[in-house]
């Protein structure tokens, strides 16, 4: 089942002197349950593409449909609400709210969605358990390691049961062990709960784990490879 369709998407940045074609005619579809990586060198357009998929930026041309909803057709306030309900975000530098505890960070979106306390607590502890940090529920981000903070960020991204999670360079700031641990958790969530993950990365470990690797260069898709079950292309 297609949950995301990218049709002939272009993104052009106009500055006073130059015109940058950051994304140049990208066509992609994503199915539910994918564990895919968008890879490419710096400046290849992967973060721009991810921002457009997440509704943080709009295409200059083309359209992006999430479950048949054209993001370009949504007004700013509807788009924010759409992101809250249907898209999970994991950022490179964790971006947790430093004054809130791990639990409060995870339940933040549920609070915005006005979940009742019992359901909220249940879901929060389930997610904290899934990322292996139930015992750190009341710790503030400053008391957690980078890897632990990123796991809390994953739990937060999953809080509102999104259609897919966009992870922009999630392992870029982590050491090898923390990266492995994080990727294993995300892979497990993907395998067991069918959560769709789309990464933007140039980390070999992420590429190795991903079942689909889309390579961008100069804003164009130059390859889109599905791996066989044993991990080879």
């Amino acid at each position: 089942m297609k949950i995301l369709e990218i049709k002939n998407v272009h993104k052009i940045y106009n500055s006073s002197e130059v015109q940058v074609h950051a994304v140049n005619g990208v066509n992609l579809d994503f199915e539910k349950g994918e564990f895919s990586a968008i890879v490419g060198p710096s400046g290849s357009g992967k973060t721009t593409l991810l921002n457009m998929i997440g509704g943080l930026d709009s295409p200059t041309e083309g359209e992006i449909r999430v479950d048949q909803t054209n993001l370009a057709g949504l007004k700013s306030s509807r788009l924010i609400d759409f992101r809250m309900r249907h898209i999970g975000f994991v950022f490179q530098s964790y971006n947790l709210i430093p004054v809130l505890t791990a639990k409060e960070n995870v339940e933040f979106i549920m609070n915005l969605q006005k979940w009742n306390k019992r359901e909220r607590d249940k879901r929060t502890y389930e997610l904290l358990e899934a990322v292996g940090l139930k015992d750190r529920a009341h710790s503030r981000p400053s008391k957690l390691s980078g890897g632990q903070q990123q796991r809390i960020a994953v739990a937060r991204a999953l809080a509102s049961k999104p259609k897919f999670v966009l992870a922009d360079e999630p392992t870029a700031n982590l050491d090898t062990k923390s990266s492995e641990n994080l990727l294993n958790i995300m892979e497990e969530l993907n395998r067991e709960e069918g959560i769709t993950f789309i990464f933007s990365t140039h980390d070999q470990r992420v590429m190795k784990k991903a079942r689909r690797v889309i390579t961008l260069e100069d804003g164009r898709v130059i390859s889109d490879e599905w791996k066989k079950k044993n991990g080879s292309s």
Partner: peptide
């Protein structure tokens, strides 16, 4: 700035 950007990204609307 970065944190406010993150809050808007994950769904905190302008009113909030």
């Amino acid at each position: 700035t970065k944190e406010l950007g993150m809050l808007t990204a994950i769904g905190m609307n302008k009113k909030r």
